[in-house]
Design a protein around this nucleic acid. Structure first.
Length: 528
RNA sequence: GGGCGUGUAGCUCAAUGGCAGAGCAGCGGCCUUUUAAGCCGUUUGUUGAGAGUUCGAGCCUCUCCACGCUCACCA
């Protein structure tokens, strides 16, 4: 907000650096000043509440007929609608659980208080009201107010206006806050006004809790590893760089947890997991945010087949405990909804087979990048991949172009090319392929897992190969982590590892097609 | 980063290149069971910013800003 000079009210003049106030805000500031002039503090320090909105309604419903007037309650919440009628006022307040109607009546509180309410209370203000529970003529559970108090005056009007409930119970939103930018930038206003958004985030919290409870139940230890790292690794992504002044060295925000968690397996912690933030300095899109929540776990003496079972059971557990069902509707595009079924077992599909079925190309017949490239351009002349990439990248291209869009129901796509999987263990008898799978749902990648490479000499060679393979591609070049190799030389048990974007899982289960909808404060350019 | 699109009152949206508008919110009044309460009256604008074309620009052109979609990127 540009500074445009102080608001003229004497109370504030010269005292604060004032934003530019709208005419609506100036009126509310005037009300604040008038309240203070009357000795009424518009921001009192303490509040009281005996019932939440739901508790008050439940108490009324539980009361035997004729004893309703015994139910005294003090409620607190934000004013969302007012209907003043001269000698009566109906108003709805909203608290953390829902809405409840307040009824101010001249017979109980007198005209003076009615007028005072109408003059000084606005939509958005926090109010405390006490009285007795009653039912209106239409049967709505309502608090008949005997006394009320301002808890916090809102200077700025909330962006949304009103809801209408039709006879059939449908909620129609009028002048609702829909602007995507305002909703994301001012999430506080979005949450205050859009109850269904609050529900999204409650569900997200429940999902994370259910993931934890499943892994805890399976004997996994939750750990925390460094976010600020001297080297980054475990994924192919550009990192954020920062600098430590005293140590006089650059530090990186982690792009994955993998290399630290596997060090713990060397230390005989057999089952570990971490839920936390990864940072990738890359493009922002409806499914990418520069920081996102990742779950990784590593399980000693397991292979990727065991990890598949853990995965489908873990997600099944989340579905059951949070939603009570394994069937979900996901609207990937407007008007294009999928019915997803997370029942176990998920479909297993070998990548070679999947690519053959969807593109007509059997990658096993083309063991070199040159041969595979030729096969692709011959069969699909209108779809041309970059000719200078590795065989693994070409397979990735086929996967993205042809196979991925067909993977709607939960599917484990398994057995990946070795050269795009430098931390995965080769399949016995097939040196070009590693034991890796990705979980696909609704046509996009949900998770990634493999039988972890635990041969320190092979690992060292893979790192060196990466350095040369991508020598002309700085962005792909991961630093060689000598300490990780040192750890592995002490001996790492065979193990299966797993990583999943928690934001993406939340998107799927809450039917949100944009990652912004499941992040409270998604990354945005700074405002002017 | 490329392409396409959007930006008008606090909110949701109108306006052939010709006086910037409506509903809600706000303000004043009436109203003792309302729930988008209603009725009467009424206020609010740097049309994202800047430049240009034109007698005249919300509208056309250019630059910039923000956001959305999409492509690239994301093993």
């Amino acid at each position: 907000m540009p500074w445009r000079g102080a608001f003229s009210i004497s109370e504030y003049e010269g005292t604060y650096r004032m934003a530019e106030y709208s005419s609506l805000e100036k009126i509310r500031l005037q009300k604040i000043e008038e309240l203070r002039a009357q000795g009424i503090e518009p921001y009192p320090t303490r509040a009281e509440r005996t019932h939440t909105s739901l508790q008050a309604i439940a108490a009324l419903e539980a009361a035997p007929a004729g004893e309703e007037t015994e139910i005294r309650a003090t409620l607190a919440g934000r004013i969302r609608a007012t209907r003043p009628m001269g000698k009566l006022v109906f108003t709805h307040i909203e608290d953390g659980e829902g809405k409840i109607q307040l009824f101010l009546r001249v017979n109980e509180i007198g005209q003076e208080k009615i007028d005072f309410f109408n003059k000084y209370y606005d939509l958005g203000d926090f109010i405390q009201a006490s009285g007795v529970m009653m039912r209106t003529r239409t049967g709505e559970a309502t608090l008949q107010v005997h006394d009320f108090k301002m808890l916090a005056k809102a200077v700025s009007p909330l962006p949304a206006a009103k809801d209408e409930t039709l006879d059939d119970g449908t909620l129609v939103r009028h002048a609702a806050l829909e602007d995507a930018e305002i909703r994301a930038r001012q999430r506080y206003a979005d949450l205050a006004v859009n109850a269904h958004i609050r529900e999204n985030f409650r569900q997200r919290a429940a999902i994370v809790k259910a993931l934890r409870s499943y892994l805890d139940g399976e004997g996994f230890l939750e750990v925390e590893t460094p976010i600020l790292q001297p080297l980054y690794g475990g994924a192919a992504a550009r990192p954020f760089v920062t600098h430590h002044n005293e140590l006089e060295q650059d530090m990186y925000l982690r792009i994955s947890f993998e290399l630290y968690l596997k060090r713990l397996l060397v230390g005989n912690l057999e089952r570990v997991y971490e839920i936390g933030r990864d940072f990738r300095n890359e493009g922002v899109s409806f499914k990418h945010n520069p920081e996102f929540t990742q779950l990784e776990f590593y399980c000693a003496y397991a292979d990727y087949l065991k990890v598949m079972e853990l995965t489908e059971n873990m997600i099944g557990h989340v579905c059951d405990t949070v939603f009570g069902t394994r069937k979900f509707t996901f609207e990937k595009e407007p008007g294009k909804a999928y019915e997803l079924d997370f029942s176990t077992p998920w479909r297993r599909l070998e990548m070679r087979q999947g690519i053959l079925e969807t593109s007509g190309i059997d990658i096993a017949e083309y063991p070199t990048a040159e041969a595979l490239f030729k096969a692709i351009v011959t069969r699909h002349p209108h779809k041309t991949p970059d000719p200078h990439v590795t065989r693994g990248k070409l397979i990735d291209f086929l996967l993205g172009e042809f196979l991925e869009p067909t993977l709607i129901q939960p599917t484990f796509l398994h057995d990946y090319p070795r050269d795009i999987s430098p931390l995965a263990k080769p399949k016995p008898g097939d040196p070009l392929t590693v034991e890796r799978f990705e979980g696909y749902v609704a046509g996009f990648e949900l998770c990634n897992a493999f039988t972890e490479l635990n041969d320190p000499l092979d690992q060292e060679q893979r790192f060196l190969d990466m350095q040369t393979d991508y020598s002309d591609d700085e962005e792909e070049k991961n630093p060689l982590d000598e300490d990780y190799l040192r750890a592995m030389r002490y001996g790492m048990p065979p193990n299966g590892g797993f990583g999943m974007g928690v934001d993406r899982l939340t998107m799927l289960l809450t039917n949100n097609r944009s990652i912004r909808e499941v992040l409270l404060f998604p990354a945005l350019r700074k405002e002017e």
